[in-house]
């Protein structure tokens, strides 16, 4: 299930819902991304997340479908928030369930790497010294490219 929303989410309850009534799942990995109070500048007071409605949901859907084609997954929950957020607020949640831990760990990692480089979200940070749009990071592209080589593919 994929959701783009302004409201906060509860990682615990999302994971419980994903697992409810299932006894075939052997591993569940959950990642929550949070707003930091420092990034490109110190003293970040807030950040505004913008997205491209319509395309966002499709892009997230493709990333999850790609993960499901690479690993044997038994459930994925992906939530990304938009709007104005404060330091400490959760931004993104990825919960991946599989029969075995390796697939769950790797698929969760993969989904975050692809999300950061392919899903149409943009962050604007509000700091004491002014507002600015966050620039893309070379390291995010390096992280995402780890999954591109055929050698890295996990059955």
């Amino acid at each position: 299930m994929i959701r783009v929303q302004q409201a906060a989410f509860d990682a615990g309850s999302e994971q419980r819902q994903l697992l409810e009534g299932r006894t075939d799942i052997g591993a569940v990995v959950s990642f929550t991304g949070l707003v930091r109070d420092f990034n490109e500048r110190p003293d970040v007071n807030a950040l505004t997340l913008e997205h491209y409605p319509g395309m966002t949901e499709v892009a997230l859907g493709e990333i999850v479908a790609e993960a499901e084609s690479r690993w044997p997954l038994q459930g994925v929950r992906l939530i990304h928030r938009v709007g104005r957020l404060a330091p400490g607020d959760p931004i993104v949640l990825v919960v991946v369930a599989s029969a075995h831990r390796r697939a769950a760990f790797e698929a969760c990692d993969f989904i975050m790497d692809y999300l950061k480089t392919r899903a149409p979200f943009w962050k604007k940070e509000h700091s004491i010294t002014g507002d600015y749009w966050v620039a893309e990071r070379e390291s995010d592209h390096r992280d995402a490219s780890r999954w591109e080589s055929d050698n890295d593919k996990i059955p």
Binding site: G33, L49, H51, Y52, M55, H80, I91, V92, M112, L115, K116, T117, R118, A119, P120, F121, W122, K123, W133, V134, A135, E136, R137
Partner: peptide, 10 residues
């Protein structure tokens, strides 16, 4: 047609 900067979500 949408033009936009590199994405920075997550």
């Amino acid at each position: 047609v949408a033009f936009f900067p590199p994405v920075t979500g997550g």
